[in-house]
């Protein structure tokens, strides 16, 4: 496992906190990201900036490596998930789903959607009483639906309709919460 000339690590560049996650990994912003390109970009950058490569360097360099590595990991965390990636693109497009600001925050769901959610909660209660199998069915159904919503958001993003994508993603968040509740109910039923 020895290597005669362990190459000294390439010096780290200055840390630029204003870079977005795509820039951080050297990728072009895209809704449909090539998974393979993402993985190899992530591994290549991780190898380069990981703090373990700088164990004998001075404290400032170690701190810098930590900053770079944490940012690379965060970018990977967001971009690898199609849902989180879509949310992030919406954010880059000017709508922050984590904010309740009337202008730039998450759009409010329609009344019809909220009524639908109430009905679905009742559906969950009924399924909980019916037992594990009914819960499994509900979970499968919901999984398909969530995938369809993310697909719709991706399509909207591809055609530049950020507001439409944001609306779909807000719905996806409600459904995600419902999915968590179904999982909890499944665990208690098992």
């Amino acid at each position: 496992m020895t290597s005669s000339e362990a190459s000294p690590p390439a010096p780290l560049e200055r840390f630029d906190p204003s870079r977005n996650h795509f820039e951080r990994l050297g990728l072009a912003p895209a809704v449909a990201l090539d998974r393979e390109a993402l993985e190899s970009a992530y591994l290549e950058r991780s190898r380069r900036v990981h703090p373990d490569r700088f164990v004998t360097a001075d404290a400032a360099t170690q701190r810098l490596a930590m900053e770079h590595a944490a940012a690379v990991n965060e970018a990977y965390q967001v971009l690898r998930s199609p849902l989180r990636r879509a949310e992030y693109l919406v954010k880059l497009g000017g709508i922050d789903l984590d904010s309740s600001d009337a202008g730039t925050g998450a759009p409010k769901p329609t009344q019809a959607f909220l009524i639908e959610m109430i009905e679905r909660r009742e559906g969950l209660e009924a399924a909980t009483e019916a037992g594990l199998e009914a819960l499994e069915d509900l979970a499968d159904e919901l999984a398909d639906e969530r995938e369809a919503i993310v697909d719709a958001a991706v399509k909207a993003l591809e055609s530049g309709e950020v507001a439409k994508a944001a609306e779909a993603l807000v719905h996806a968040r409600y459904l995600a919460r419902l999915a968590d509740e179904i999982e909890n109910a499944k665990e208690s039923a098992a």
Partner: peptide, 14 residues
């Protein structure tokens, strides 16, 4: 050994 700064073929643990 790796973290002591020894010349060992690089591996990265994530």
């Amino acid at each position: 050994d790796l973290l002591s700064g020894s010349k060992r073929e690089g591996m990265t643990l994530l």
